[in-house]
Computed example of a mutant assay.
Amino acid sequence: MRETLEKIDRVLGAVDKTLMVILASSATILAFVNVVARYVFNASIVWAGELTTYLFIWMTLFGASYGFEVDMHMSFNALVKALPAKLCKAVTILSRLIVLFFLVMLAYLGVQLVKFDYMTGQVSIDLQIPFWIIYLVVPITMITATWRVFVKIVDIILTPASELKKMGIDAELEEKEKEGLIE
């Protein structure tokens, strides 16, 4: 079971990393082309600013989701690691459950936002793209982030308390860096 969860997690990580690179590159190139067009040719691309904004927002949300895979989000590990092993494990699970609940709520609210925008039929000003398509990134990334936190909770539950206490964020980051998940 653990191997299957990790395999799915690796695939999601590869998708997130690929999308982050594509979105960031596209936004940067588009912004650059628009600046050149504006200052060299005295004619800007009307929709470039709006699309660049959406691309960076999408990249950020996919990056936030990926951050849960590599444990890059803020945490208070030093304080938790100072607790006795079993209490350390319980507090770690509790904190991850709180994050999981929060992400589930964000995913649910994201779905509601997409439904609302679909029903209203609103479109973006310059691109004329329906807002429900633009906002679809919210439930997608919150669902993938929820999955990642779920996998971490399963991993914590399956890890003995004494082992969990020894594991530090630095050790986890070094391991992810060796695996090529972060650079």
Rank of each mutant, 00 (worst) to 15 (best):
L5P: 11
E6I: 09
E6Y: 13
D9C: 13
G13E: 09
V15R: 15
D16Q: 07
T18C: 03
M20I: 12
S26T: 13
T28S: 14
I29D: 09
L30C: 04
L30F: 05
A31P: 11
V33F: 09
V35T: 10
V35S: 04
A37E: 04
R38L: 06
R38E: 02
Y39F: 14
F41W: 07
W47Q: 13
W47G: 06
G49T: 07
G49P: 05
Y54S: 05
Y54V: 01
L55W: 04
I57A: 07
W58F: 06
M59A: 15
T60A: 13
L61E: 02
F62Q: 06
A64D: 00
E69G: 12
M72D: 12
M72K: 11
S75Y: 09
F76T: 08
A78Q: 05
V80N: 04
A82R: 09
P84E: 04
K86T: 04
L87R: 10
A90L: 15
S95P: 10
S95D: 01
A107S: 12
L109G: 12
G110W: 04
V114T: 03
K115C: 08
F116P: 10
D117Q: 08
D117M: 07
M119K: 10
Q122R: 13
S124E: 03
S124G: 02
I125F: 12
P130Y: 01
W132T: 09
I133C: 04
V137G: 02
I140V: 10
I143E: 06
A145Y: 09
W147L: 01
K152D: 11
V154R: 06
P160R: 08
P160Y: 06
A161Y: 03
A161Q: 03
E163S: 04
E163G: 03
L164I: 02
K166H: 02
D170H: 03
A171S: 11
L173Y: 06
E175W: 07
K178T: 10
E179P: 06
G180H: 13
